[in-house]
Amino acid sequence: MGNAVSAAIAIVLGVGGVLVLFWGLNAAVERLPKQQEEMLKPYVFVGPSLAIVGLFLLYPSILTVWFSFQTNVGTPAQEFTLDNYVYLFTDGALHSALINNLLWIIVVPAGAVAIGLLVAVLADRLKPTAEKISKALIFLPMAISFVGASTIWLFIYAWRPPGVEQFGLLMAIAELFGRVPAEPILQMTQFRLNNFALMAVMIWLQAGFAMVLLSAAIKNVPEDTIEAARIDGASEIQIFWRVTVPQIKSTIVVVGTTILILVLKIFDVPRVMTSGDFDTNVIANIYYDQAFTFGNRGRASVVVVALIFMTLPFMYLNIKRFREQEANR
């Protein structure tokens, strides 16, 4: 109850405060001579948002880079060091996690795009109602939190020793074939198999997103290009690969990279399902442990610096695409 009241107060103060701030600033610049008013007003409108991202994202980014060169961050003994970078380049556990991250960013975007594409293409040929229902079913996991999804899949993967009745769906199917493994799937470290079991959760979550965007792109493919190929005697599969896919390539790239950026920072799923044990650790989890379990902020910062480096190409691509789009306006 107290929470509801304080939340209500926060909304009123937050929204009211923002309004009063803008109204006040606006009134203040309106008292200036016309020319100065016109010059300053845009900055009044942009200022608060800019200040917020400056304080919450820009300034922390600079500080993080700075911290990555420091030891004993936040204590009087803080001083310059390169130890964090030595850690970054030599630590075995961190490198094992990096390999996992690499697998994640290859497998999950590919899997989600493949399933999304499959559903988008097949559902397109159904009657409207059937199409709508099948799309909604694939899309529904999108609304579920990563923690909720992890719980759902822990239940799917639930394992009991061979001979005992299985209540987890996957092991029950294995039991049908008389092949219940001697250990739970999430502990199978051979070929990092357990990592793929975690990735399946993320593919399940993201396929709907891929489907929605790809489906819209497919519907925008001009019908006459497909007709022409059909008249030329192309099979449906040839039409798909040679006519449809080339025309939706840019959407495939956007969807793939969006999921890739999300997966690069994957944290919740391994954290909840395995705690990063059994060779399933990922860099975002190492970051969390360094920063908040071991309190080693220098090491935590160097891990984030590595993450920032990995996102830089995508930042560049986004900005480039934005510029092109502006040029076409």
Partner: peptide, 16 residues
């Protein structure tokens, strides 16, 4: 700046 910040990992912000 806003476009660039769309992909910045939130992890940069937690310790600061």
């Amino acid at each position: 700046i806003f476009v660039g910040l769309l992909v910045v990992p939130l992890q940069v912000a937690f310790v600061p």
